[in-house]
């Protein structure tokens, strides 16, 4: 919807509160005008990630100068295994970008993907991924977000069932007035599919975290085993987390569950860490890093996992002085 608005320059095409799926990510309200499309890109940021990582395809996406629309496809041939690191890099200023990814996985193919998205605090940024899978595919994704004026990472997976597996994880660490939205839709189309999701987030200052996760099990997709968990921490009384985990089930022989918790940092754990000699700020950082770190620990590729942990630690560092 954002791409359409950018292409046509028509502000009324922007998604907003009128649209159920965008009630907490109001782009219409955030943008008083739609910036013109401009193919030029800002310079790549000095991301501390090596360009070449062993066995990993690293792709870097520079921010547009004004408005930018980009469409990226990736095909993993049957039986092949790929590891991808998508770095959606920050630019400067009030740019608006729409990134669309289309992944196609052949029979028995597997893809592990890490998305790290950085944006300017004034930017509006949406990245949408559609994944088409065949039988016996394995798709695993981790999204690490740091927010923007409005930022949304949306993933749709059509799961054919069979022996296929899907993992869709995410983490967000938000400070200042940043907003980040992680939205997932997993559609189980065939028998005996499995999907797992873990999303964790921490918000401080006046930040706002949004999580929407929908599991659909279509008629005939019996034997589906789908689980989703979202856990949020709110560190400040001005911060907000909105979440909506959804189950939409049309088959009876299934095991589907979701869990959703939102709370404050565990004071007992904090006390324990401090009684062991850690200064308060460090104790907080330790707890926050451990909380979101569990998401990174689920990444199979060791190089990718390390990058994720470094990213999260850097984000937690930025929390100092916030969240009281």
């Amino acid at each position: 919807m954002l791409a359409e608005a950018l292409r046509s320059g028509d502000r009324t095409k922007l998604p907003g509160r009128r649209h159920e799926g965008w009630r907490w990510t109001d782009l219409f309200g955030a943008l008083t005008t739609v910036p013109p499309l401009n193919p030029e890109r800002q310079a790549l940021g000095s991301w501390s990630v090596p360009i070449a990582l062993d066995g990993v395809v690293v792709r870097r996406f520079a921010a547009p100068i004004q408005g930018g629309v980009e469409h990226v496809t990736l095909e993993v041939p049957a039986g092949d295994h790929r590891v991808v690191l998508d770095l959606i890099e920050a630019g400067q200023g009030r740019y608006v970008r729409d990134l669309a990814f289309d992944f196609t996985l052949g029979v028995g193919a597997s893809l592990e993907r890490l998305v790290m998205i950085a944006d300017d605090a004034d930017a509006v940024s949406v990245a949408t991924t559609h994944v088409q899978m065949q039988a016996r595919c394995d798709f695993a994704q981790t999204v690490l977000a740091s927010g923007a004026r409005r930022q949304r990472v949306e993933t749709h997976v059509d799961h054919p069932g069979g022996a296929g597996r899907v993992r869709l994880d995410g983490a967000y660490l938000l400070a200042g007035a940043r907003h980040a939205d992680q939205t997932t839709v997993v559609r189980h189309l065939g028998r005996d599919g499995e999907s797992r999701q873990l999303v964790r987030g921490v918000v401080a200052g006046a930040a706002r975290g949004v999580f929407q996760g929908r599991i659909e099990v279509l008629q005939g997709a019996d034997g589906t085993d789908a689980r989703l968990a979202h856990n949020g921490l709110i560190l400040s009384d001005r911060a907000e987390i909105d979440s909506k985990p959804e189950l939409e089930i049309y088959a009876d022989d299934v095991a589907c569950a979701h869990g959703n918790t939102i709370g404050a940092l565990d004071e007992d754990a904090l006390f324990y860490a401090m009684s062991r000699g850690l200064p308060e700020a460090e104790a907080r950082r330790l707890l926050i890093t451990a909380f979101v770190g569990e998401v990174a620990e689920r990444i199979r590729h060791p190089g990718l996992r390390d990058q994720a942990l470094i990213f999260l630690a850097a984000q937690a560092e930025a929390f100092d002085g916030e969240g009281r």
């Binding site: 709110i234 560190l235 911060a239 987390i241 909506k244 869990g259 959703n260 939102i262 404050a264």
Partner: peptide
């Protein structure tokens, strides 16, 4: 679920 303060505790399953 809409949580707008740092001392609330919400659980859903």
């Amino acid at each position: 679920v809409e949580a707008r303060n740092g001392s609330a505790k919400l659980e859903h399953e």
